[in-house]
Simulated scan of single mutants.
Amino acid sequence: MWKIQKRTWILSIFLISSLVGLAGCTEKTVKDKSLEGSVTEPQQQPERKPQEEPKKEEEPKPVVVNVIDPITKDLVKSFLPVDLGFGNENDTYKKEMEKWAKELARGTDQSPGYDQRMILDKLDANGQIIKGKPKIILEESELVEKLMAASVVGGDVELPLYVTESGYKPEDAAHLDEVAVASYTTKFNSAVVGRSKNIEISAQAINNIIVGTGDIFSFNTTVGPSDAAHGYQIAKEIVNKKLVDGVGGGICQTSSTLFNTVDKLGVKYVEKHHHSLSVGYVPAGRDATVSYGGPDFQFQNTTGVPFLIKTIYGKGTLTIEIRTTNAYQSQLKN
């Protein structure tokens, strides 16, 4: 009996001890969870952006002016206006631009200018057109205005070139020989070989020249130099009121014959000069002296229609005719 009670008592103590241990474990677990809940995680600091450096002010780009040829698209000149005084000495700068524009238009001893007289078209022996050259004018004042404006902001400036083609229709060329509307003949001594040859060469140079409406005919430009290289010979010519020997003597008879022919039409004279002495092949005051590089005979076709210059060289005679189409004959202004 005593053994049974003793065993029961020991077992009871063991169970009580076990329950106390479990209670202790449970309390610890609750406390641990409570502590875990009360722990505050460290807050994440915001990422700092690198401090931006202050922007540097951009230096202004230099003002550059480029002058362009509108026909070839080539660069004629490029410069910085400030280097030439723009902004400080504008009046002086403008004068420099005017000087440069003049040289560019008219040329210098070293280079030709843009300005170009018209070289008129011509018909060959088969009636085909031989092209000449158009009239070209570089407007100097307009160029200076463009340069002054561009000097403020820079940029490209195209040369103000004005190109004028001959005033006739290509399809009319084959018919311009249909009818003569004016004619004049002068005589010379065919035995004087040198002079006769010079008349022949210069007459051939202006033969079959097409003068379009509004075109300006220049004898010197059309005929060219009257020198030995072009076949001209020594003959008498008037120089400073004296008859002297010179290469090309006699070409003034060709220019004077042409003057008396076109004078029958409504043309406008651009340039015309008299000899210093009377000549025998035209009446007094009806001559037109010429010299390549010097006096020229120029007229503008203001008749309202295109026409053809026709020369007929014979033994001792030179005849020059102005011819046009049958249709244009009635429209021609005298």
Rank of each mutant, 00 (worst) to 15 (best):
D177P: 02
L159Q: 07
A229K: 15
V181F: 03
G214H: 01
T185P: 03
G212A: 08
A182T: 03
V153N: 12
V153I: 11
T185S: 10
N189W: 00
V179S: 05
E165A: 13
G154F: 06
K197L: 06
S218P: 07
M148C: 10
P170A: 05
P160Y: 07
S183L: 06
A203E: 03
Q204A: 11
T222E: 13
A182L: 07
H175K: 12
K187E: 14
F217Y: 08
V223C: 15
N207V: 00
D156E: 14
T213F: 02
D172C: 05
D215Q: 03
Y162V: 09
E165T: 11
A229E: 15
G214K: 03
E171P: 00
I201C: 09
R195M: 10
N208M: 09
T222F: 11
I199D: 12
S202K: 02
G194Y: 07
H175F: 09
T186H: 08
L159V: 06
S218V: 08
K169L: 14
V223I: 14
N208K: 14
D227Y: 13
K187V: 03
D172H: 05
V153D: 07
R195Q: 12
K197M: 10
D227I: 13
N208S: 13
V192F: 05
F217G: 05
T222S: 15
A180Y: 00
V223T: 15
L176K: 01
T213E: 12
E165H: 10
N208V: 00
K197G: 13
F188R: 08
S226K: 09
A180P: 08
F219Q: 08
F188S: 09
E171W: 00
D156A: 11
V193N: 14
E158I: 05
V157Q: 10
D227W: 07
A174I: 02
A173M: 10
Y184F: 15
F217E: 04
V211I: 12
A174E: 08
S218I: 04
I216W: 01
A229L: 14
K197W: 00
S190R: 07
A228Q: 15
T222L: 13
I201W: 04
V153M: 09
I201R: 11
P225I: 13
L176F: 03
V179G: 10
S190D: 12
F217Q: 05
F217T: 02
V163E: 14
A203C: 01
G214D: 03
N207A: 03
Y168K: 02
M148R: 13
D177H: 11
K146R: 14
V192D: 13
G167P: 02
L147K: 03
A150P: 05
V152W: 02
K187P: 00
V157D: 11
V211Y: 02
K169F: 05
P160V: 03
G224A: 14
F219Y: 15
I206Y: 04
R195T: 02
G154L: 07
G167R: 01
T164N: 04
S166Y: 00
A150C: 07
Y168T: 01
I199K: 06
T185M: 06
E165F: 10
E165V: 04
S196E: 00
A149N: 12
A180D: 06
T164I: 06
F219H: 11
S196L: 01
I206H: 01
E158G: 12
H230R: 15
K169W: 00
T222C: 13
F188P: 05
P225R: 15
P225Q: 15
N220I: 06
D156C: 02
A180W: 01
K197N: 15
A228S: 15
L176W: 00
T222P: 12
Y184R: 05
T221Q: 14
